[in-house]
Simulated assay, not measured.
Amino acid sequence: MSDDLKPTYTEKGKAFERDMDYIPDRILAGEHSADPDDATYGGRDPERDGIQVWPVEPGRYRLVAAPACPWANRSLIVRKLLGLEDVISVGLPGPTHDKRSWTFDRDPGGVDPVLGIERLQQAYFNRFPDYPKGITVPAMVDAESVAVVTNDFPWITHDFFFEWKDHHREGAPDLWPAAQREEMEEVMKRVFTEVNNGVYRCGFAGSQEAYEAAYERLWTAMDWLEERLATRRYLMGDAITEADVRLFTTLVRFDPVYHGHFKCNRNKLTEMPNLWGYARDLFQTPGFGETVDFEQIKAHYYVVHTDINPTGIIPAGPDPAVWETPHGRESLQG
């Protein structure tokens, strides 16, 4: 999801609203999804809703995911956790861009070495010449036609788990445990609406009233998470799930960006013992920390959001070394 898009305000209170209308296509292993709870494509009808189904084919697709973006960071983590590096290649746009698109400015010659394009926008226009919406990451791109397949970020990681199972590494984690599915969906919904999107609701609030309401909602959820993690190592218990991936990408950006830049400053993450220990625990787990680039994260928010930070000055801190300190969460393992 491109964080540079202009926020949409309601008429009353100028509250931030996120546009969740993405390209709905899916990459599926068979006629229907392998997810037993998703036999009808997540409640959407392919013919009615214009969904095109693409086949799972190793080497066919390129995941374009800017490390700076929390929504893209999810897909990078899940790809690594499941061991899909050899079947789904990855393109990494740089952290700063103009209003048109994410760019591959950190690749040699400023061109993605597989897709042969300078801007992700080109892959969108190859599929939809008059694409009217924001050019967002993560995006799955068909490498042969260099055309975007989907940018529907919640379904991208969902399908990495359910549809690419034949290509998972041995011992890959069960990110969607069936026995906890119902509760996990509820937890993920609250994490998304109140925390993942809650920090943006604070940062892009268009009035004092909207900001204060967003701030209260965010911290109510953060306190709920602090309490939940007092007695369990991960959000759903003893094992990492998709819910942890979704929360982590916001937590790892909290002190470097959201605390000050988005005015989420009741306290720092480092001042919440359970959440801070939990975040470090995940960071130090293979698949998480190596996808995090604090330099790119800060460059994106502080340079691209000119309305919030017109000077473009990037803060020097905090010291990322704190993420490698002992977390002590092992004692909560059942």
Score class of each variant (00 low, 15 high):
88 I>L: 14
154 P>V: 11
68 A>K: 09
160 F>Y: 15
135 I>G: 01
75 S>V: 11
120 L>D: 00
142 D>E: 10
55 P>I: 03
53 V>I: 15
139 A>P: 02
95 P>L: 10
65 A>M: 12
79 R>W: 06
115 L>N: 04
47 E>F: 14
53 V>T: 10
127 R>Y: 01
80 K>N: 05
47 E>K: 15
74 R>T: 07
73 N>H: 15
60 R>K: 15
79 R>S: 06
45 D>V: 07
138 P>T: 10
45 D>S: 10
66 A>N: 12
116 G>T: 03
73 N>A: 07
153 F>W: 14
98 D>L: 10
124 Y>P: 03
70 P>L: 09
50 G>C: 05
66 A>K: 12
90 V>D: 01
82 L>R: 06
170 E>S: 14
175 L>Y: 01
76 L>K: 09
43 G>C: 12
139 A>T: 14
167 H>D: 02
71 W>H: 09
174 D>V: 14
135 I>D: 00
173 P>M: 06
152 D>K: 11
169 R>V: 12
64 V>Q: 06
103 T>P: 07
131 Y>C: 04
61 Y>N: 05
101 S>E: 00
131 Y>A: 03
95 P>F: 13
78 V>P: 00
42 G>D: 08
74 R>P: 07
54 W>T: 05
50 G>T: 00
104 F>T: 01
106 R>P: 00
87 V>I: 09
74 R>C: 13
171 G>A: 08
